[in-house]
Simulated assay, not measured.
Amino acid sequence: MSYQQFAYLYDELMADAPYSKWLSFIKSAVFAYHPNTIRLLDVGCGTGSMPILLAKEGFEVTGVDLSSDMLMVAKEKADKGNVALSLFQQDMRELEGLGAYDCVTILCDSLNYILTEEDVKRTFLSAWNHLEPNGLFIFDVHSLHKINDIFIGSTFGSNDEALSYIWQCYQGEYENSVEHDLSFFILTNNDNYERYDELHIQRTFSAEDYSKWLNECQFEVLSITADFENHKPLEQSERILFIAKKS
Rank of each mutant, 00 (worst) to 15 (best):
M1Q: 07
Q5I: 11
L23Q: 14
S24I: 04
F25Y: 15
I26R: 04
I26Y: 02
F31K: 13
F31M: 06
N36H: 04
T37G: 03
L40F: 05
T47G: 03
T47L: 00
T62G: 01
D65W: 12
A74S: 09
K75F: 13
Q90R: 12
E94L: 12
L95A: 10
Y101S: 01
V104Q: 08
V104R: 03
N112M: 05
L115H: 14
E118I: 02
V120M: 08
K121C: 03
K121R: 12
F124K: 07
L125M: 09
A127R: 03
P133G: 04
P133S: 06
G135R: 00
F137V: 05
F137I: 03
F137L: 10
S143R: 00
K146D: 05
D149T: 06
S154Q: 09
G157L: 00
E161I: 05
A162S: 14
L163Q: 06
S164N: 14
C169F: 13
Y170Q: 15
Y170T: 08
Y174C: 05
N176E: 03
S177T: 11
E179I: 14
F184W: 14
N189L: 10
D191H: 10
N192V: 05
L199R: 07
R203I: 02
N215A: 11
Q218L: 06
L222T: 01
L222V: 01
L234P: 04
L234S: 15
E235Y: 15
R239V: 07
I240C: 11
I240F: 11
L241A: 09
K246Y: 01
